[in-house]
Design a protein around this nucleic acid. Structure first.
Length: 283
DNA sequence: CTTATTTGACCGAA
DNA sequence: TTCGGTCAAATAAG
């Protein structure tokens, strides 16, 4: 909680500094201006990520429902928050966060690679579990390439005795796992929307896990050869949270990373926030 | 019809 | 051998 408060405070201070320096910056090259804007944006994104992590942790610790308003009232007990926003503004923003639930995976990847969200450690914050989450709040499992010269051709019709499998083709692909709160609205037990379209191709009971794991691949695998996949599984101790693992890159969309909006100052609450861009591949 | 999901079989890795 | 990821036939949905 304190970590989030510090980060959001820092973000607002950066904004203020940026604002006061703005007149001088007109003399600077555009590059400088852009860097400053990036700093402000990163600060807000980092704060938002911490907030999301907090929400997920609370959901996983106490198996009870946390509503946007209850969370907002929690925040409002901190004067740092109240310096900038009223409780109703916070509530409104919490509503947005609960509704959006998750950023598109490429956005998350961008956050990850830019090291925007640093210093969040779930275990320090008291998460009780076996998750191994790195300092960015995203568990990353990297698989090293196995030096195995296995030149298999493309899958031809098996037709006879053996069915050629291409299981471990991309051993160097990176897995990225994140915790996603389940949608509160709607009767859906289905994994939350993340901006991509997925097609389920399997489900498996996992040993030692309460809930099965679902296997999804990109719907456009056929048309575009998109190799993106994801696995979705509920946490054992809290069915309100999905563990979503992404693997492979989307090659089926072009306009990537539309990080929607970066609310500044009071407009942080206003509802212009992030119409989830449904990336539609051109035909 | 086409397209998506379900679900047991299949296969490779450990 | 077991386990987990994938395939694919059957089925459901539109």
């Amino acid at each position: 909680m304190e970590e989030f408060m510090n980060s959001i405070k820092h973000a607002f201070e950066l904004t203020r500094v940026f604002e006061s320096n703005l007149p001088n910056m007109s003399n600077q090259p555009p590059h400088t201006l852009r860097l400053s804007i990036d700093d402000v944006m990163k600060a807000f994104i980092g704060a938002k990520e911490r907030l999301l992590m907090m929400m997920m942790m609370m959901l996983s610790q106490q198996d009870q429902t946390i509503t946007p308003s209850s969370f907002a009232s929690m925040l409002s007990t901190h004067d740092v928050a109240m310096q900038y926003a009223t409780t109703s503004m916070l509530t409104s923003y919490m509503n947005h966060l609960f509704q959006v639930q998750q950023l598109p995976s490429d956005h998350v990847r961008a956050l990850h690679e830019n090291k925007i969200t640093d210093g969040v450690n779930l275990q320090e914050l008291g998460y009780k579990g076996t998750l191994n989450i790195d300092e960015k709040g995203v568990r990353v499992v990297e698989r090293s390439v196995r030096s195995k010269s296995e030149g298999n051709g493309h899958g031809i019709e098996p037709s006879s005795s053996s069915r050629p499998r291409k299981c471990r083709r991309n051993n160097d692909s990176v897995k990225k796992t994140m915790m996603v709160p389940a949608p509160k609205v709607g009767n859906t037990e289905i994994p939350p929307e993340d901006g991509f379209t997925w097609r389920k191709y399997g489900q498996k009971e996992i040993l030692g896990s309460k809930y099965p794991r679902g296997y999804y691949r990109c719907t456009h695998q056929k048309l575009y050869g998109c190799q993106a996949k994801k696995q979705v599984q509920k946490l054992d101790h809290n069915s309100n949270i999905f563990e979503v693992t992404y693997r492979g890159e989307h090659t089926c969309h072009m306009s990537s990373t539309a990080p929607s909006s970066f609310p500044l100052t009071q407009s942080i609450i206003s509802s212009e926030l992030s119409p989830l861009s449904t990336s539609l591949p051109n035909t």
